[in-house]
Computed example of a mutant assay.
Amino acid sequence: MYLDVRSDWLSYVDEVPRALVATNTVANLKALEQSPRHAHQKAQLVFTLRGIINCEVEDAVWVVPPQCAVWIPGGLPHTVFGSGVVECISLFIEPPEAPSLPDKCCTITVSGLLRHLLMRANEMPERYDVDGPDGRIVSVIFDELAVAPIEDLRLPIPSDPRLKKLTDLLIAAPADRASVAEWASRVALSERSLSRMLAEEVGMSFGRWRRQLHVVLALRHLSTGQTVQAVAMDLGYESASGFVTMFRKMVGKPPARYLSERPGPAPRDHDGG
């Protein structure tokens, strides 16, 4: 089953009379790339076990490395795609049963306890006994989700056509170190107009927005086993140390440490910190 993209499965999940429905999914990049934009009544938590999951909503792309999860509120149109072979658990949650959970799309860190609870939920009967042990596990899952740390693994996508074109140009050539004025001229804007529009639409300066893009791209590549050195060069940094400094400032940890705390391939370059 490909995540949650089959219309018959979506309808079925929404009709299951339980606060939580869990599914385990293994899929490849091609299958997930074919995922159409869709929505469902229940909220969804996608927990990545292996590989990188990306969730795209109208105004942002969320990157979900191993040991993280993305929360998608009910009714929010989205599409989900992966980088390489991925394995994940999807939990479909009835919002009224969990009023303390997020009301916006976000990426959260999954603790060791929450990971075990999610794995246990994946083994529960679909129509579990809400008054028995399984029902109590669901309650604990909701409690843990309500206090789970949120990570800023989001790339805001502007709505203005010129800024969308700029986004495409930056993604196509992440190593291009052109100045803000040069990037602005490529989409027929002045540097001042570009800075003002980015501040209004994504709440970031051009420099921070581009660094956020580099973090998203770096996580995708590092989680497949690429070296820190190779990723740094691909993103246009003069040295691995310069890239590591940027990553640490944006994420709070150097890339090797960040990924070593998660299951799956870690970067193979000692320069990762």
Rank of each mutant, 00 (worst) to 15 (best):
A146H: 06
A69D: 00
K249D: 07
V64T: 12
A256M: 13
I150W: 00
Y258L: 05
P158I: 13
D59M: 11
K42Y: 06
W9I: 14
I53M: 08
S83K: 07
R196E: 07
V13P: 03
V70Q: 01
G273T: 04
D234V: 04
P158Q: 13
F243D: 05
R37P: 02
R192N: 12
H78K: 08
S205I: 06
I108N: 03
T23S: 13
E123Q: 13
K104R: 06
G264P: 00
M204L: 14
P156Q: 10
V202L: 04
Y2M: 04
G203T: 05
V70K: 01
I93W: 01
R210V: 10
A98N: 10
R154C: 14
E201C: 07
Q34N: 05
W62R: 03
A31E: 10
R154A: 12
D14P: 09
G207D: 15
A22H: 01
V187E: 12
A69I: 00
I171T: 13
D4Q: 11
Q212K: 15
T224G: 08
V21F: 02
L45I: 09
S185I: 06
P156E: 09
P254E: 03
G272M: 03
F81C: 08
G207I: 15
L29D: 09
H38K: 14
D269V: 05
S260I: 00
R257Q: 11
D160T: 12
S190G: 13
V147F: 05
A43Y: 00
R177Q: 10
G135E: 01
T245G: 10
C68A: 05
A181T: 12
P158F: 10
P158E: 14
E33K: 08
R210T: 11
D168H: 07
D143W: 01
A98D: 08
T245S: 12
P133K: 05
E201M: 08
L10I: 14
W183Q: 07
A121D: 03
S7Y: 11
R268A: 08
S193E: 07
V187I: 15
K30Q: 09
D14R: 11
N28Y: 03
L113C: 15
M233R: 08
P267F: 01
L29V: 08
S139A: 12
A60S: 15
D8G: 11
G273K: 04
S159W: 02
M204F: 11
F206L: 04
D176R: 01
A181C: 05
L145D: 04
S190K: 11
Q44W: 00
Q44A: 11
A172V: 02
G242Y: 01
R211G: 09
K30P: 00
A60P: 05
H214F: 02
H38D: 10
E238Q: 04
T224Q: 12
P255L: 02
K165Y: 03
P96N: 14
V13L: 12
V138M: 10
S260C: 03
N28C: 13
D134I: 04
V86T: 14
L198I: 04
I93Y: 01
V202D: 03
V86L: 14
